[in-house]
Lab assay of single mutants.
Amino acid sequence: MALNTPQITPTKKITVRAIGEELPRGDYQRCPQCDMLFSLPEINSHQSAYCPRCQAKIRDGRDWSLTRLAAMAFTMLLLMPFAWGEPLLHIWLLGIRIDANVMQGIWQMTKQGDAITGSMVFFCVIGAPLILVTSIAYLWFGNRLGMNLRPVLLMLERLKEWVMLDIYLVGIGVASIKVQDYAHIQAGVGLFSFVALVILTTVTLSHLNVEELWERFYPQRPATRRDEKLRVCLGCHFTGYPDQRGRCPRCHIPLRLRRRHSLQKCWAALLASIVLLLPANLLPISIIYLNGGRQEDTILSGIMSLASSNIAVAGIVFIASILVPFTKVIVMFTLLLSIHFKCQQGLRTRILLLRMVTWIGRWSMLDLFVISLTMSLINRDQILAFTMGPAAFYFGAAVILTILAVEWLDSRLLWDAHESGNARFDD
Rank of each mutant, 00 (worst) to 15 (best):
M1T: 00
A2E: 09
Q7R: 09
I8F: 11
T9F: 09
P10I: 07
K13V: 12
K13E: 10
I14E: 13
T15E: 09
V16E: 13
V16M: 09
A18F: 07
L23E: 09
P24S: 13
P24Q: 10
R25H: 10
G26T: 10
Q29C: 10
Q29T: 14
Q29P: 08
C31F: 00
P32S: 15
P32H: 14
Q33R: 15
Q33E: 11
D35Q: 02
F38P: 13
F38D: 03
Q47A: 12
P52Q: 06
P52A: 07
P52G: 05
I58W: 09
R59W: 10
R59D: 10
D63L: 15
D63E: 13
S65H: 08
S65Y: 08
S65D: 05
M72T: 09
M72S: 05
M72F: 02
A73E: 12
M80F: 10
P81M: 06
W84P: 06
W84S: 07
P87L: 05
L88N: 04
W92H: 06
L93D: 00
I96K: 04
D99S: 12
N101K: 02
V102Q: 14
V102H: 02
G105N: 02
G105I: 03
W107G: 15
T110A: 06
A115F: 02
I116D: 13
I116K: 08
G118T: 03
V121L: 10
V121F: 11
C124P: 06
V125L: 09
G127Y: 01
A128Y: 01
L130Q: 04
S135A: 06
S135I: 01
A137Q: 07
Y138E: 01
L139R: 00
L139E: 01
L139N: 02
L139P: 01
N143F: 15
L145H: 04
M147A: 04
N148L: 02
L149C: 15
R150K: 14
V152K: 01
L154Q: 03
L154E: 02
M155H: 05
K160F: 07
K160G: 07
E161L: 14
D166K: 15
I172H: 04
I172E: 03
V174C: 14
V174Q: 02
V174S: 13
S176F: 07
S176V: 05
I177Y: 07
I177C: 14
I177T: 05
V179Q: 02
D181Y: 04
A183G: 01
H184M: 15
I185K: 01
I185M: 12
Q186I: 10
A187L: 14
V189P: 11
V189L: 15
V189A: 08
G190M: 02
F192R: 08
F194C: 12
F194V: 10
V195S: 07
A196W: 09
I199S: 14
L200V: 13
V203F: 07
V203G: 14
T204N: 12
T204W: 02
L208Y: 08
N209I: 05
L213V: 06
F217Y: 07
F217P: 05
R221K: 10
P222D: 09
T224D: 09
R225P: 05
R231Y: 05
L234D: 13
G235T: 03
G235K: 01
Y241N: 08
P242V: 09
R245C: 09
G246I: 04
G246Q: 06
C251V: 00
I253V: 14
H261M: 08
C266Y: 02
W267C: 14
A268M: 02
L270D: 06
S273T: 10
L277W: 03
A280L: 07
I285Q: 01
I287S: 05
Y289H: 04
L290K: 01
E296I: 15
D297G: 05
I299M: 15
S301R: 10
L306T: 02
S309W: 09
A312W: 14
V313C: 11
V313E: 02
A314L: 07
G315M: 07
G315Q: 15
G315C: 07
I316N: 07
V317C: 02
I319M: 11
V331Y: 14
T334W: 12
L335E: 10
S338I: 15
I339F: 15
H340K: 08
H340D: 05
C343S: 13
Q345N: 05
R348E: 11
R350I: 07
L352M: 13
L354M: 10
R355Y: 14
I360N: 02
R362W: 01
S364M: 00
S364T: 07
S364D: 00
M365E: 04
L366I: 09
D367H: 00
L368A: 05
F369R: 00
V370D: 00
S372E: 12
T374I: 06
T374Q: 00
I378Y: 01
N379Q: 11
R380I: 03
R380D: 00
D381C: 02
Q382W: 11
I383V: 06
I383R: 15
L384M: 07
A385C: 10
M388V: 07
A391C: 08
A391D: 01
A392Y: 01
Y394G: 03
A397G: 10
A397M: 05
A398T: 08
V399E: 01
V399N: 05
I403C: 07
A405M: 01
A405P: 03
V406I: 09
W408L: 04
S411D: 08
S411M: 09
R412L: 00
L413I: 13
L414F: 08
W415G: 08
S420E: 11
F425W: 14
D426R: 13
